[in-house]
């Protein structure tokens, strides 16, 4: 098997995650889909590291994880704050950015 299959899987997961972001309204699930996309990227990085025979791809994946962790912390805090004021976790309820 060619390791490029990992890349196909990564693309597939990324696309599924992207579609989830677009389709779901629950902010938490949207957020999970974002995490899914990040993980798909990580898979691609790790696979590239293997394909090219150096560890830089893994380093980038590592940094991605760190950033994802930070993002999750802040993002979930925002969701909690939003829920407190609106009693809703739907992204469609935050629709003031319009004319």
């Amino acid at each position: 098997m060619n390791p490029i299959n990992y890349l196909y899987l990564s693309a597939l997961l990324f696309t599924i995650g992207g579609a989830g972001v677009l389709v779901r309204r629950n902010a938490i699930i949207v957020f999970m889909c974002v995490e899914l996309m990040l993980n798909a990227c990580n898979l691609a990085f790790v696979t590239f590291a293997r394909l090219h025979g150096n560890l830089d791809g893994q380093i980038i994946a590592f940094f991605t994880m760190v950033v994802a962790a930070a993002e999750v912390v802040v993002g979930l805090a925002i969701i909690v704050t939003f829920f407190r004021s609106r009693h809703s976790a739907s992204v469609d309820d935050a629709s003031l950015m319009k004319l």
Binding site: L22, D92, S95, K98, L99
Partner: peptide, 17 residues
């Protein structure tokens, strides 16, 4: 054109994608 700007984040995300 302003119909496009409906305030829904998901719509904007579609255009980004």
């Amino acid at each position: 054109l302003r119909q496009v700007q409906n305030g829904y984040v998901r719509s904007y995300a579609v255009s980004m994608l």
